[in-house]
Design a protein around this nucleic acid. Sequence first.
DNA 1: CTGAATCCTTAGTGATACTG
DNA 2: CAGTATCACTAAGGATTCAG
Lengths: 171, 171
Amino acid sequence: MKLDTYSQSTPEVAETNTINTAKTATTEQSGKDFFVQNTCKDKKDSEGHGVCPLRELLSRLGDKWSVLLILTLARMPGERARFSELKRSLPDISQRMLTATLRNLERDGLISREMFAEVPPRVEYQLTELGVSILNPMREIVTWIEGNWTTIITSRETFDKKNPKEENGLQ
Amino acid sequence: MKLDTYSQSTPEVAETNTINTAKTATTEQSGKDFFVQNTCKDKKDSEGHGVCPLRELLSRLGDKWSVLLILTLARMPGERARFSELKRSLPDISQRMLTATLRNLERDGLISREMFAEVPPRVEYQLTELGVSILNPMREIVTWIEGNWTTIITSRETFDKKNPKEENGLQ
DNA sequence: CTGAATCCTTAGTGATACTG
DNA sequence: CAGTATCACTAAGGATTCAG
């Protein structure tokens, strides 16, 4: 027997509540909506493309090494370096992940790859124009993080203190 | 029997190669290095903090819903909305993920949570000052993605055409 | 040197059902 | 309404080994 205590809406607070539900939808161009709004599925279409650009690109930038790799490459002379240099600059990255990340970034056109048919193989990676163009927005995020990191840490500590659950975070 | 064909460095191309290895390290403040450089481990210290702020925050922004949620909240009047409104705005998110993402963002201090002890429970979430402050850098990334999305798609297509492997991407 | 191939572990995510 | 709890699945990531 389900008590109806928590039905759709109680008499006194019908439909629209304290906070207005504000159909502000029309105030935004529906172009933006494509990126943020409802229709944003992660399913791939017939071509194999993701259908949510924002989410897909974001998750690329959010993956473990892409940003670090781009920033590392940006610090190299000519925004250019070879495989082993990158490996040295990011000691914690596994060879497998370095290869894979480079490959994905190349696929997206952010870096270019040049292979030299020498006896000890040499491969050089370089930020493309597209890759360079993302540096500024990227650096703004980095700057923001640098500037607010301690604030965030503090926030976490007080939060964890007030919520002394076993384990925090996802799951 | 290992042939020594690929030893450290071949005679004619010793140590420093075509591309100079440029110890440009000194040209960068070592503060930056903390974020990008070698010492960047993902291990947690005794307190449970990640030791690589950049990576950690980036992966938060890169997770499936954080950015979408922040942007959605930013579009609400007063950068404020209740749980069910957010759920409606992001129909594809599961309740579990909405709860978890909101919780993480609250923990980081990007959003605040206010609970009302009413009979049908009401909880309102709002971007904090910190949360609002990340909107601009975030929007720059979004803008960049919007502006370069088709370029990236094109790049991927040509790449996949030239590399007709079974499946691309990681793994 | 620069990868590719395998194997394996686990974190992220979704579906579903239950609760105050 | 706003969550929690469980379970199950997948994909991301690491370690290691093999190869041109």
